[in-house]
Design a protein around this nucleic acid. Structure first.
Length: 259
DNA sequence: CCAAATGTTTTCCC
DNA sequence: CGGGAAAACATTTG
């Protein structure tokens, strides 16, 4: 579930922690840096930042980076800003918690201020990780920047858009959604795209992602999870949607208007 | 039992 | 060192 849009929703929700002092740190050492429990207690949350799919919690001397893998979710003061459809039968199983932070101040001690819950354990919590390897953030894309980021790449556009070193924050759902709006087929190789097509992709990123964010995240596009799964008809021209594996991920697209 | 799942990372080959 | 493809990772759900 978590793509850049979900990370942004969680960043926003985590703003409530700013100014609080971290008192308790509990982590699953398999997916979190053990140093966290040494350096975080006693430090104050200064600000919350997001870059790509990573949420960063700044304290005076360290930055706690949260990456959510495929199934990570955030619970703030006992409330989940996003309710995942996946694993919905038992979503609050505490055995799936990978990180818990308790804070002094605002709320009592009972629900941890922050829980990261991740059944599949593909997410990671890191300390002072750098972002150098990431490409342009999804909310900073324009046509020129995208053209530059794509230059030198030859693989299918869908694959390249998912590469976090090219554009940081696009996941499988948003990538398909963007290409659907841009009218570009996912298997098209980057080198074969016209300037106009690259521009359309940049526009789709700039226009549609904020709309999806407002609606609640990467599952709120025209190619909804239901439509993807049932392979219904294209909402634009009613042609039957197609599905294939591209770059190791499931791609869904309209064979008529996506060229 | 099998396939698939919203994401990286690693490995191997050019 | 870089691009690309495929496998690996871990766990649950349908």
């Amino acid at each position: 579930m978590p793509e850049g849009l979900e990370a942004e929703i969680w960043r926003s929700a985590l703003d409530t922690l700013v100014g609080r002092t971290i008192t308790d740190v509990w982590i699953d050492d398999r997916v979190a840096d053990p140093e966290l429990r040494v350096v975080l207690p006693g430090s104050t949350v200064e600000r919350i930042e997001r870059y790509g799919k990573v949420v960063r919690i700044h304290t005076p001397h360290h930055v706690l980076g949260l990456h959510f893998g495929m199934t990570g979710r955030v619970i703030v003061d006992g409330v989940a800003p996003i309710e995942s459809l996946e694993y919905a039968s038992d979503k609050d199983r505490s055995a799936w918690d990978r990180l818990r932070l308790g804070t002094a101040g605002a709320t009592g001690t009972d629900p941890p201020a922050l829980r990261v819950n991740d059944p599949r354990r593909l997410g990671r919590s890191s300390l002072d990780a750098d972002l150098d390897h990431l490409g342009v953030d999804i909310f900073s894309v324009d046509a020129d920047i995208l053209a530059l980021a794509l230059s030198g790449r030859r693989a299918a556009i869908k694959t390249v858009l998912l590469d976090q070193t090219v554009v940081a924050g696009l996941g499988n759902l948003c990538a398909d959604e963007v290409l659907w709006w841009a009218g570009v087929a996912p298997q098209r190789h980057v080198g074969s795209l016209t300037e106009q097509q690259v521009e359309s992709i940049a526009t789709a990123i700039a226009v549609q992602l904020p709309i999806m964010l407002e609606r609640g995240g990467s599952t709120m596009g025209e190619l909804s999870p239901t439509r993807r799964q049932t392979l219904g008809s294209c909402p634009y021209d009613l042609a039957p949607l197609q599905r294939a594996t591209i770059g190791g991920r499931t791609a869904v697209w309209c064979p008529i208007h996506q060229k």
